[in-house]
Design a protein around this nucleic acid. Structure first.
Lengths: 128, 128, 128, 128
DNA sequence: TTTT
DNA sequence: TTTT
């Protein structure tokens, strides 16, 4: 069946990179996705959406983006279940990103710019 | 910012229809979205995703679909926060459906078939 | 960059299956995607969208769906250029399907039903 | 039926703004959407996709974006037919944008920045 | 050249 | 007819 999620938003913090026992990289972060309209107090509302990324893209996220970065996510919705420390079963809904596009302008002379010059020209390998 | 979710799946139960104090219709249901592959035990895995629908579409859902119905959802991801009875703050992630398409074949002579004939020809008003 | 198209519609004809010189299967068909509202004459309008499918999914399409079948497509937009017989350069915009979901109910006792029983349980291999 | 297209890319030229006889604004432009990989010659390939925008969003496009601007489009695929000057019927496939998000960083002190300060805080009214 |  |  079909399950597709597309988001554009900003990281609320730097991504957290971990490795599974078998050595696969996993990055997690939460994405602030602004809604279209401000609320009554004039504050802009946002949805804070948990995102998981796997493998090489996880490492790219850890290396190239951080708190405040603007990204586009293309992935799917996943619902996991886990048992809290209080013994209660809980549900987590998160987006598994199949693709993460980095949308920030790279500053002239930034690390990203430099790195961009040394690596193959591909959105999959390096962000740009 | 962009926030879009597209799902195809089946209702795990009949939709629940409620009204807000101001009279707006809201339907909720959970959608079973099968993943592509079966797990080690040969069982098919699925994600169970909470869906909310508003206004006339909510009433259409309550009237025309039920447990087991196949639907396509086009909407956005929303994260709400609420306080549990234990005083703990919890988060709910759900899909707010902007469009619900009914994908089941209507049986010849079913209520749906009949109704289809009496109402204007529009996916927005009646499902088909 | 991001490029994603999601469609639900019906085939206007049986898919055409071909093979590239190197032996890769390609299926093409056009999808009638109904718009939401009827026009002034009360006729339902539709967009007729060219779709291309590659490899095993191409062969699945040729085997399992035909004129009138209801499918969901998840893919990307592609613009190709070619030279007409009049020497004029022309553009074709088509959807390259990465996933084709078959949404029709299989009739009891149909080939599809039988096949469903003999093959591994996966949306990627057999439609269901 | 479902018909959804989501794109991120750059304008190849400034948008063209026109008005229908009844006074509705329409903007058109073509979006260069880079594919993921470079071709054999090491050049980056792209799809050049025609986009149409209506009403206030059309005027926003004409006012705030131009050649080279990075945007995200959320809309639907449309196939139109027209008769060429040679009397031949032709087909055009284009994306009707329901939402256009402006993704470029506004330069400090730019018109966009200034305007941003004077207008209501909403992605629908002003880009940011 | 179009589907239910 | 194409963008960075």
């Amino acid at each position: 069946m079909l399950n597709r999620v597309i988001l554009i938003g900003r990281l609320t913090k730097d991504p957290e990179l971990r490795y599974t026992p078998s050595g696969t990289a996993v990055a997690t972060f939460t994405l602030a996705v602004n809604r279209n309209r401000a609320n009554q107090e004039g504050e802009r509302e946002a949805d804070f959406i948990p995102v998981v990324v796997w493998q090489k893209q996880a490492e790219n996220c850890a290396n190239y983006i951080g708190k405040g970065s603007l990204v586009a996510i293309d992935g799917r919705l996943q619902v996991r279940t886990y048992d809290g420390k209080d013994g209660q079963r809980r549900w987590v809904t998160e987006v598994v990103a199949e693709n993460v596009r980095f949308l920030d302008k790279r500053e002239k002379g930034s690390t990203l710019e430099q790195i961009g010059k040394e690596v193959p020209f591909s959105d999959d390998d390096i962000p740009f």
